[in-house]
Design a protein around this nucleic acid. Sequence first.
DNA 1: CGAAAGATTGAGGTGGCTCAAACGGCGTGG
DNA 2: CCACGCCGTTTGAGCCACCTCAATCTTTCG
Lengths: 255, 255
Amino acid sequence: MPPSLTAENMPVRPRRLVIAGMEGCTNCSVCEVRANGICSALRDDELERLARAAVRITVPPGHIFIEEGSRATDFFNITGGTVKLFKSLPDGRRQITGFVSIGHFLGLAVSDRYAFGAEAIDQVKLCRFSRPKLDSLTEEFPRMERRLLSEAANELVAAQDQMLLLGRKTARERVSSFLYGQLENHYGDVIPADARISFPMTRADIADFLGLTVETVSRTLSGLRRDGLVTMNAGHTISVPSPARLRAIAQGEEG
Amino acid sequence: MPPSLTAENMPVRPRRLVIAGMEGCTNCSVCEVRANGICSALRDDELERLARAAVRITVPPGHIFIEEGSRATDFFNITGGTVKLFKSLPDGRRQITGFVSIGHFLGLAVSDRYAFGAEAIDQVKLCRFSRPKLDSLTEEFPRMERRLLSEAANELVAAQDQMLLLGRKTARERVSSFLYGQLENHYGDVIPADARISFPMTRADIADFLGLTVETVSRTLSGLRRDGLVTMNAGHTISVPSPARLRAIAQGEEG
DNA sequence: CGAAAGATTGAGGTGGCTCAAACGGCGTGG
DNA sequence: CCACGCCGTTTGAGCCACCTCAATCTTTCG
């Protein structure tokens, strides 16, 4: 059993700390996302009550575990893997509104139905809470509600950034923004020169996230490579010699 | 996700319930947004404490009262008028992330700085709370925190809709979505045939909201008029004979 | 090793942008 | 009361960034 992890002695950024063989575990005090999940706001004794409300499940790649417009019966906390959230139009056009991974919650709904769909990109592990259970839990633990509010505020800021991207940025700026965002996810606020990213999403996912086509994403990446801004080891692993230059492009600071 | 974010306790649509001559009033129990503002979650005795923390101010049209990136010292509740929220790029490109009016809050920030700017479109009235004051208030009134969470959840849903619009909709669909949204704001869920909207924002505002240019917005409106979908009385007042058809276009259901 | 999915590249088309001009309402001042 | 100027809106003409369609190449995985 790992030492007790409190909010104070843990870093803020998500870690790739994934403990194998936890599938059947319902003891939240040793949960791998204790440090970042919604549970991070709780004390050990409170966690025990939480554990009874949570069910840990595993979702295979490509599986849609939240259907757009279906009844919002559950609430999820991601404990491993990466999920894409999306909205679609009747003719199949799709917009990915965000990628969420370890430590983040999922299932905030205004009405009794989900306004978005959720699909596992790779093998995804998550904690499921039934909505009524969660309601009574937040009732009991105000600190958890505060945690949810701060998480929602974060999502809102990210959503506003994405609106600026989708409404006003060029393809080159969008792709650079995406790559830089991946760098931030991985390294936090201090990104070293010659950084490397590895991400699970396909070009099609990236295109649907950036409001572009696969071809444009591919061409734009090739362009960045030609300009020495990135080097591509494999399709899903990219090196960035100068993150600062990439950031400048992402923010529209280049000629 | 949110605790009680069930249909029953969700905020209803904003009402045009505006009581004149309240400018100097600091008694929240008779406040015109009592029904929809963040205060709506509070009892009368709690409101009295709230009143001491609030300052009512008036902002003239065109005035930017939140500067992008400035210190997030205050939190606002809009009691009259319409505000545009925006983000900009260094070269002046601008994206309006939302229009907020009576009853909505403003100023939720993740860091110690605002990630967006806010500008009054018409004459705007608002309640200002200092951040520390608000913090102690939410500490004291958990119900208020819950209210903020539900409001944030609503904003998040709207933001996701807007991302779909910006990333995947045509100009015609975007303009139709905007107009239909205005109808919803005004009428709520039940929109009568032959509905009329009147909005304060200029074509430039609409363009920056929809990720288009002024010219495209204008041309698209002309197109909708040519097709009998809208009739324009004055530039800022538009009639919609068949809201259902407009909605169909907005959602990409037309050929 | 082979099939299928994903990624890249090319050629050509187009929706929305840019540049430009004209129009209209409204407040101001003569 | 009208002339003027300002600002927002509309309309036109031409262009370009990104999309569409299509072929080829690469990676993945049974």
